[in-house]
Amino acid sequence: MYKRPAFHIDTSRCTGCKTCMIACMDKHDLPEGVLWRRVTEYVGGEWAARPDGTYTQNIFGYYLSIGCNHCQNPICVRSCPTTAMHKGKDGIVSVDHTKCVGCRYCEWGCPYSAPQYDAKLGKMTKCDFCRDYQQEGTAPACVAACPNRALDYGEYEELAAKYGEVNVIAPLPDPGITQPNLVITLGKNAKPAGSKAGKVSNPEEV
């Protein structure tokens, strides 16, 4: 039982391979268009032509794999008019499908796109921190799958002690909004939240 169930992402190791996404899809049988974990590709920099026909450039890019941060101040829970979205005693933010009416307010509220609408069910769905696996003592599917060991999970305080307390990086929002249980190791290309240096270059994939 967690007080603050958290994910860690090391952006110096995340290569955007999306294995975490497929492992999540396979485990949870996510229907088309429902992505409990998403990998954004954040890219920036400019090309400058020189008179001799060559170019100089300062292109940079990095990937960021985000599921649900099971926030301390979950805006999805605050946005939910039916109390279907709730934070459990184990800290995991879940949807009670007996109460969810599929109004999608939580989806609009969450700046991480964690709540995902299942059109067939007419209800919201989201990352459940692989609660069943955790009960068996195994890691969430995404974490166990990561080929480059860029993902970790556990109690927030422990992850923060191990990796530091950074949770600010572009293109993620100001962590003050929801207090995410997220710990980030910054790679050399990392830009601060709110940076205009780059942009998400795969919006259709996330």
Partner: peptide
């Protein structure tokens, strides 16, 4: 369902042979 190497990952050189996204999609 498909998962991958779960046999232990503590030591480099005997680490888990974790499949990439393609191997993980094997069911489909």
């Amino acid at each position: 369902r498909i998962d991958s190497d779960t046999q232990g990952d503590s030591e480099y050189g005997l680490h888990e042979i974790r499949a990439c996204l393609r191997g993980r999609s094997m069911r489909h």
